[in-house]
Design a protein around this nucleic acid. Sequence first.
RNA 1: GGGCGGUUAGCUCAGUUGGUAGAGCGCGUCUCUUACACAGACGAUGUCGCAGGUUCAAGUCCUGCACCGCCCACCA
Length: 747
Amino acid sequence: MAIILFATMMSTKYPNNSTSSLRAGSGQDLPKAYNPKETEDRIYKLWEESGYFNPDNLPKRHKKPFSIVLPPPNVTAALHMGSALMLAIEDVMIRFERMRGKKALWLPGTDHASIATEEKFLKDTKISKRDYVAKRQEFIDLITEFALKNQTIILGQMRAMGSSLDWSRLKFTLDPDSIDAVHEAFIRMYNMGLIYMGSGKVVNWDPRGQTVVSDDEIEYEPGKATLYTFRYSKDFPVAISTTRPETKVGDTAVAVHPDDERYKRYINRTFSVNFTGVNLSIKIVGDPSVDPAFGTGAVGVTPAHSLADSEIASRHNLPSQQVINEYARMNKEAGPLLSDKKTMEARKIIIDHLRKQGLIEKEEIVDQNIPKAQRSGGIIEPLPKKHQFFVNVNKPVEKRNGKTIRELLKEVVEAKKIKILPERFEKVYLNWVENLRDWSISRQIWYGIRPPVWYKPQASADDNLEYTVSKTKPAGEGWEQFNDTLDTWFSSGLWTFSTLGWPKKTGDLKTYHPTDVLETAYDIIFFWVARMILMSQVLIGEIPFKTVYLHGLVRDEKGRKISKSLGNNIDPVSMINEYGADAVRMAMIIGTSAGNDSKVSSDKFRAYKHFANKLWNISRFILMNIPETEGIRKAKLTEQDKKIAEEQAKLIKDITQDMENFRFYLAGEKTYHYVWHTFADKIIEESKEKLASKNPEIKASTQKILLELLINSLKILHPFMPFVTEEIYSKIPGNKGKILMIEEWPS
RNA sequence: GGGCGGUUAGCUCAGUUGGUAGAGCGCGUCUCUUACACAGACGAUGUCGCAGGUUCAAGUCCUGCACCGCCCACCA
């Protein structure tokens, strides 16, 4: 039915073969509609075979280097629309700079993303890590297989987007040279005293993921909790308040404000109490961090299970007693009543006990944020853990004039050595630096890079571990490498220079570092952007990039965040298949300003698909009216046509400025508007009469101006819509063998 | 508790340095005209969240407020 209808439409529309009446010209060979599917693979192959993705192969005019490293996608899954936006913007920048004569390098890579990949793998396969305790290598092999499968998909998606990445420089964070760079970085920072092993520091423990996580990997979920006010025992002089009574068996002190008249006389006295069958020795200390107005003004200090309390404890030399283990259960030290109970069960038991003893003075419901591990969702249990490595952010770095990491991080942005766009994120960044604590880099994840640290499991006492830091196994018997792996951001923090060959002194490093732009989503400004600045400051004394351009998050049609659990992920390749890569790119870029979230909508994709087709038909019309180009190029422009050329030159100047100032959405929109509503609707419409003119000068001038406008339009559109413009460019008579991708940007 | 963003046409969103509002989709009428119906011509629709202020002039700058959203800190 549909087919018949279509055929009828066609026949009524074109009763007599209308194309045959057209003048001779290559345009008549072109189909009526642009076909992205038929074009894209062919054009991408043409680009790849030209070798020009690799800046080393670019013609001589490309002198000044321009470089961007691609934020390496995690090999957890196929790319989503956010990555498509990233690829589109970065390819626009690279193609623009390449055409302007820069030696443009866009360096591709992927990230093993240790914790994220491991979590995703476990979820997808329903494998239990416990079953592999004795078979760690087997487990790693399975994840590697999973990761490589995703990597293959990802690299295909990047190509489908038209990304002009230099594949000859492709990197993966687990490549041998990348691992070597990580080891080198670790060793250097260790020797500089910037990496240290904590001895039982309180860490953020994720009982579900069974690993330590950094402060940045915690998300807070709003919730309610009961705040209990009670005394440890009847004869204890002060009452304390807590939402976590189960931790109180680990208390070693009560802190009050030093000037609090109510408690002043007890300060520095120690009391012995029996609390739920456990004998506690509680010292009352005066500490200015205590707010006398909150609760009773007295805090039970649990050094082992609270970061804040551990800080109080270190100020007063208090002992620490761990009572909760790594499975979020009470340990033996919690006493026979609580031992081996889950923390929530223990809480009930303690509350029952306190009620029976009449020790509770007050119960109230309060708002409380529950800290959860970002990846696994496990509730964070602060606890002391041995043999964990940290990056010291407050230690003076000798090679950097004695400035600390925190100072260095602050300085480069405040002094505008690194520009962050949109500017408001500078504040966000600086606020993070202000609150920065030592960076915990040890993870109990298996899929990742182990630190270059060796120890003797048999010979070493747990408390006094003998270890050595070196790339290779030390001489002698019994040495084994640490089982922990490093935070995935430790390796990606090196990305701008490890991908260029560091620690070797390569030509690439000299030519392309610091990179020009780091383009990424704003949600990894702390995880990644800040860590890259940190690593390059400390290890090579350079900034990693001159400008940070942050794009927003891509949301679904309802404005929701794209997530696996909502199942609202859209595969960019399915959109490309439906609308063409050029349309997807345009739709992602236009109407999306820096740092602001955007929504995907099929309407928008369709609109830009229509635009690609419009451009196609504009070109078809012009090519139909231009039999050859040589004579036309020699023709003289009429005054009127000169004006038209000037107007286009003005627009080009304008959009060039927009491009230079990272206003791609404006440049794209202006170009779109010009091509459709000025070039097609006005100039071409008016040209029809002139092309039919008996005056050969008018006709020649018209042909010349149309061709010029078309060529320039193709050039300025090329960064946005590389496929269709390249395809049309190759159809212009006289362009055989030319590649639009490296043609000169018009001015 | 601190900080940030948004509030502009029915919907989704642009609006670069202040000069009486734009795009896409949608809507109405007409149109096979030397390319394109994935099109063209014409058209309707906004007191630019609210209240003040600066200015010859404010969506655009300043102050306050409301609602929506985000980030950071985290008090036991």
